[in-house]
């Protein structure tokens, strides 16, 4: 399948190009950006990242396991301290809170690795080190009959270079 690689200087142009590509049904695209830009993120996909679910599940697991651990261990080895119950809830909030944060943080990291596809692996064929400098890339895979249309669209959005790969 032909692949068009376009290089841009500004994130606004990338966002505009992506929106137009999507409006015309060219959904098989990848953007490369040297820094985070909200406009590109919104142009590509307005849905929030699923990382939030990882954080939520981690946090709930942490608070549940934190209290469970403390209550179980306190009842397993009961020591009377300052007249408090063996399983005394108020002081357990502290470790419960810390474990909520810990589990939520670790799960958030897992979410990043899974949702971002982050693991040691070969880089994309069309990735270029210019995209970790100050330039932006948009890679579009399209049918051969659409190459001219995509190329025209990219140039119309101030792409400074457009090249064709895998023709």
């Amino acid at each position: 399948m032909p692949t068009l690689i376009s290089v841009f200087d500004l994130p606004g142009d990338v966002a505009s190009a992506v929106r137009k590509l999507k409006n015309r049904g060219f959904d098989d695209l990848t953007t490369y950006s040297p820094a985070p830009f909200e406009e590109i993120e919104l142009a590509e996909d307005v849905k929030p990242s699923s990382v939030r679910l990882f954080t939520l599940i981690g946090g709930l697991s942490g608070v549940f396991l934190g209290f469970l651990m403390q209550i179980w261990m306190s009842l397993e080895w009961p020591i009377k301290i300052a007249g408090k119950n063996f399983a005394s809830i108020p002081p357990y909030w502290i470790i419960g809170f810390e474990l909520t944060i810990l589990f939520a943080g670790v799960f958030t990291l897992l979410g990043l690795l899974m949702m971002g596809g982050l693991y040691p692996r070969p880089l994309d064929k069309h990735y270029c080190q210019r995209f970790s400098a100050e330039e932006f890339g948009v890679v579009v895979r399209c049918a051969e009959r659409d190459v001219a249309e995509v190329e025209a669209l990219m140039r119309g959005e101030s792409a400074k270079e457009v090249s064709l790969a895998d023709a």
């Binding site: 990848t30 953007t31 490369y32 820094a35 590109i40 939520a104 958030t108 982050l118 040691p120």
Partner: peptide, 23 residues
């Protein structure tokens, strides 16, 4: 970890930084 600055990666990264900040 295979970072290339793709839209998908930045989206997950931004959300992760936001959540870690909140935590």
């Amino acid at each position: 970890l295979g970072w290339q600055g793709t839209g998908r990666q930045w989206k997950a990264h931004n959300r992760t930084v936001l959540h870690l900040s909140g935590l």
